[in-house]
Design a binder for these strands. Structure first.
Length: 556
RNA sequence: UGACCCGUGGUGUAAUUGGCAACACAACUGAUUUUGGUUCAGUAGAGUCCAAGUUCGAACCUUGGCGGGUCAACCA
C-alpha cells in the first residue's frame, strides 16, 4: 500500500486486506473495469473507474479494461472509442491489458460444451413465455423444463447446430442446469446462450449465438486472473450464479470474488444509461457531450477537470447504502480545483456601458492585472483601460437597497486594478431603461488605491469597449427541477425537466487576453464563476461555457 | 407471501472493529480581502430506525419488528 495512505479507506479495501491476510490468490490484487460499449460513460462510471484503478494501485496490483460486448444488438465501436478516451482523460491507464468479452467467445463455447458433457447444461426449445412461466415466482419454486433431461449426446448435437445457424432467433436457448427451486431466481436454470443473427462489431458474422452476461462475466474474470470483481449492487443476487460457473470452471485454488457497492446518484440529475439515452434521442439535450449531461464527456465539455472528478469520487466514498449525493459536492470539487489553477480574466455577461467623462478620449492605458492571486507563479498580464467601458448591469442599482454596496448614483466604487469611479449621471431611453452611465474617475487612484486612504465597499469587474472580445456565453442550470427526478414511481422524469437549464447570452464581452486560448481552457471570470472555451468556438466567434458560478455571499 | 442487501446530523461518509459519535459538503456568525471569491476563526445540527437481549460498556454482537432497495430481460 502507499505509505501516505496505509489504512484501507472503504469496506472493499478492508475485504482485500482480509483476503491478503488469508493468503488468497498468491497475494495478487487484480481488478477490471468492464463497461458494455452501448453508451457513453457517466460520472457513476468515473467513480467505478477510480475505485478499480485506485484500489489496484493501492495494493500494487493491476487493472484491466474489458469491454463487456456480449450483446451485438446494442453495441458499437463508437462507444468503445469514447470509453477509452474517457478512461484515459480521467488519468488511468490499462497498459496492454485491453480485453473484450468477445475475445473469449471460443473459450466460452468450449466451456459450454464441457458443461453439456457433464450434464450441467441443456438446450431448451420452449418459447420465452413458457420458460418464464416455468421459472415461477420468487415465493414459489419453478417447474422443470421437459428438455431438462435431454441426454448430453443429443444436447451436444443440437448445440452444434445452434452454433452453425441451423435454428432461428428465438427457437432455442442453452440453459445451465442449476436449481429450479432456488429462492434466487437467477439460479433457476439461467440462460447461457441465445441466438442472435446479428453481426458483432468485432467478430462480424462468425457467431449467431451469444453468451449472456451471467455466463460470460465470471469466466472472463477467471481467465484474466481478476481477484476482485467490483460491481454495483444490482448484481448482488447474481453472485451465487457467478460463483457457480467459476466453481465449474476452476482448475486451481484461485478464485475471483465479486464485491458490490452502491451506484452513484447525484441530486437533480439522472444516471442510468437508458434515461440518458432518452434525453439524447428525444433531443432534450444536444448530445451525449451536452454540458448539462452527467456524462464524462459532458462534464469535460462543461469545464470539469480530471482532478476534480477524481477528488469527487474520493469524497463520496464507497458503501452499500443507496443514497443521493448533493450536486453541491461536485460543484465544490471543481471550484476548489479551479480556484487554485484557473487563469483570472474579466468578462461582462450583461453589459452596461460606462463613459468616464473626465478621461481623455482616445487614450488607452495598459493596466497590470494578477493572473491568479492563489498562485504568484502565474504572473501578471496587461488589461486595456479607456474612456468607454462595460460593467455588469447588476453591479448598478439606481436606488440601492441596504445590502447593495456596488455602484449607484453618487457612490464611489473601484474598478478592479484600475481606478475609483463615481457615478454622476444615469442615461435612459424613452422606455425608461438605463442605457448608459456617466462616471468620473479619480486619476490619483490608479492601480486601485487612493493615496488619501479613502475606502470603497465594492470592486467591480469591467472591460474596455473598443478592445473587448465579443463572445457567446452559455449558462447552465440543473437539468431537472426535482432533487430525485427518477425517484417518483407515479411520475415521469420528463415532468421535472428544467425549461431554463440552458441560457445563451450572445452579447458578452471579455478582455482580449482570452483570444489565444484553446478549446476547453478554463478561466475564472472574476466575481462571476469559472468558464471554459466550448469546442464550438471559432476565430470569429468565441463561445464560453459557465462551468460553475462562484459562491455568492451576497444575500439580496 | 420468498431470497439477498441497506438504515449514523439536511446530504455523503467515518468511528483504530465492543470504549468520549468524527470529517467533508451544505447552512449560519465574525475577521481578512482590490473578486460579496479565497483564506482564517467560530456556531448550530445526529445520540446512531424501533424494541428487547448479551456486556462493566453497544452505532458495532444476538433476536424480533419497522422502513427502504434489488431479483421473476433470449439486457448488462
Amino acid at each position: 500500500m502507499d505509505k501516505e495512505d496505509e489504512l484501507p479507506k472503504n469496506f472493499i479495501q478492508q475485504q482485500i486486506v482480509e483476503d491478503l491476510a488469508e493468503g488468497k490468490n498468491g497475494g495478487r490484487v487484480h481488478t477490471r473495469f468492464p463497461p458494455e460499449p452501448n453508451g457513453y460513460l457517466h460520472i457513476g462510471h468515473a467513480k467505478s473507474i477510480c475505485l478499480n484503478f485506485g484500489t489496484a494501485k493501492k495494493f500494487g496490483g493491476l487493472t484491466n479494461l474489458r469491454f463487456d460486448d456480449t450483446n451485438p444488438t446494442k453495441e458499437d465501436t463508437e462507444y468503445v472509442d469514447s470509453i477509452m478516451e474517457d478512461v484515459r482523460w480521467l488519468g488511468f491507464d490499462w497498459d496492454d491489458r485491453l480485453f473484450y468479452a468477445s475475445d473469449y467467445f471460443d473459450k466460452l463455447y468450449d466451456f459450454a460444451v464441457a458443461l453439456i458433457k457433464r450434464g450441467k447444461a441443456y438446450v431448451d426449445f420452449q418459447s420465452q413465455e413458457v420458460i418464464s412461466d416455468q421459472k415461477g415466482v420468487p415465493t414459489r419454486p419453478g417447474t422443470d423444463s421437459p428438455y431438462r433431461n435431454t441426454t448430453p449426446e443429443e444436447n451436444l448435437e443440437i448445440f452444434a447446430k445452434m452454433k452453425a445457424g441451423f435454428y432461428n432467433e428465438g427457437d432455442c436457448v442453452l440453459r445451465a442446469k442449476v436449481d429450479m427451486a432456488s429462492p434466487n431466481m437467477h439460479m433457476r436454470d439461467p440462460l447461457m446462450y441465445r441466438i442472435l443473427k446479428q453481426p458483432h462489431h468485432r467478430t462480424g458474422d462468425k457467431w449467431c449465438i451469444y453468451p449472456m452476461y451471467d455466463y460470460a462475466h465470471g469466466q472472463c474474470d477467471y481467465w484474466e486472473g481478476i481477484t476482485h470483481s467490483i460491481c454495483t449492487l444490482e448484481f448482488e443476487v447474481h453472485r451465487p450464479l457467478y460463483d457457480w460457473f467459476v466453481e465449474e470452471l476452476k482448475d486451481s485454488d484461485y478464485r475471483p470474488r465479486q464485491i458490490e457497492f452502491s451506484r452513484l446518484n447525484i441530486s437533480y440529475t439522472v444516471m442510468s444509461k437508458r434515461r440518458l439515452l432518452q434525453l439524447v434521442k428525444e433531443n432534450y439535450v444536444k448530445g451525449w457531450d451536452d454540458p448539462r449531461m452527467p456524462t464524462i464527456c459532458g462534464l469535460r465539455r462543461r469545464g470539469y477537470t480530471p482532478e476534480s472528478m477524481r477528488a469527487f469520487s474520493d469524497m463520496v466514498g464507497i458503501t452499500k447504502v443507496d443514497g443521493v449525493t448533493d450536486v453541491a459536492v461536485l460543484e465544490y470539487c471543481i471550484r476548489e480545483d479551479l480556484n487554485k489553477r484557473a487563469q483570472r480574466v474579466m468578462g461582462v455577461l450583461d453589459p452596461l456601458k460606462v463613459v468616464i467623462t473626465n478621461y481623455p478620449e482616445g487614450q488607452v492605458e495598459e493596466i497590470d492585472a494578477v493572473n491568479n492571486p492563489e498562485d504568484e507563479s502565474m504572473g501578471k498580464r496587461k488589461v486595456p483601460f479607456s474612456r468607454e467601458l462595460y460593467i455588469e448591469r447588476e453591479d448598478f442599482m439606481e436606488t440601492p437597497t441596504n445590502k447593495f454596496y456596488r455602484l449607484s448614483p453618487g457612490r464611489e466604487v473601484r474598478l478592479r486594478y484600475s481606478y475609483f469611479i463615481k457615478c454622476s449621471e444615469v442615461i435612459k431611453n424613452e422606455q425608461g431603461e438605463i442605457t448608459e452611465l456617466h462616471c468620473t474617475y479619480d486619476p490619483d487612484t490608479k492601480g486601485g488605491n487612493s493615496p488619501d486612504g479613502r475606502k470603497v465597499k465594492a470592486t467591480l469587474h469591467w472591460v474596455a469597449v473598443a478592445q473587448a472580445v465579443k463572445a457567446e456565453v452559455r449558462l447552465y442550470d440543473r437539468l431537472f427541477t426535482d432533487p430525485d427526478p427518477a425517484g417518483h414511481k407515479d411520475k415521469d422524469l420528463l415532468e421535472f425537466l428544467n425549461p431554463d437549464s440552458l441560457q445563451v447570452l450572445s452579447e458578452c464581452y471579455v478582455e482580449p487576453f482570452v483570444k489565444n486560448a484553446k478549446p476547453l481552457d478554463n478561466f475564472q471570470f472574476e466575481r462571476l464563476g469559472y468558464f471554459n472555451i466550448d469546442p464550438d468556438s471559432t476565430a470569429d466567434k468565441m463561445v464560453f461555457n459557465r462551468t460553475v458560478s462562484l459562491k455568492d455571499g451576497y444575500k439580496k
